[in-house]
Amino acid sequence: MKKIAIAALTLLTAFAVQAKDWDVVRLAVDVPYEPFEYKAPDGTLTGFEIDLGNAVCEEMGVKCEWVIQAWDGIIPGLLARKYDAIFSSMSITPERAKKVSFSNGYYNTPTGLFAKKGADLDLSNLKGKRVGAQRGTIQDNYATDNFKGAEIMRYGTADELVLDLYGGRLDLVVLDFPVGESTILKGDKGSEYERVGDFLQLGAGVGVALRPRDKDLLEMFNKALDTVKSNGVYDEIRKKYFDYDIKI
């Protein structure tokens, strides 16, 4: 009886120690998603999130291992302990927060407003104008709540949205800036269009997803993220990949 109790106690302490002791943290990433994570020609993983993840691990004093995982199974894989954290541009949403716990956000791509050059829109009064957005996105919600009086046209894909902007059916488009940059400004009629107004920061951004029970690891990530954001390491990495700010 005593022996069993001792054995159980040792086992328990062993577990307790193991739970606290993070020598190696396995990070899941879905590649390619340029410029956040992709493979260089020689096969090594690279990208903004890879560099940031390595910097965060260094700050935490642990060894990081990257695990490549397809997006569809990325949350089940975390819960099945195939890896310890998802570091793969996962937007913080209430639906996902029911399954995983999120660290503080570490980036958020800005939202941009796009219009034809010289259209000279008054953004505070868009009455009677047509504003395009992608259905169900945070940009759609933003336009619905803020551009009262304007007609909000909703599209299934960004491509259809751009087609109607180029075709002259839309006066203004609200779109995730990197998407708008690559489709509208770098499209075949891109030179006729421009970004108007200020960059917007919508939504809670992207965070590290962890198993809800690993509260200690969450703490470690939050502390390390705060440090790299404030000591300049983050900005240095960001400048390598983006010429606009995405820090939140």
Binding site: E95, R135, G136, D140, N141, R154
Partner: peptide, 8 residues
């Protein structure tokens, strides 16, 4: 579709 995408 609009209602579906707003409320999932």
């Amino acid at each position: 579709q609009n209602i579906y995408s707003r409320f999932y």
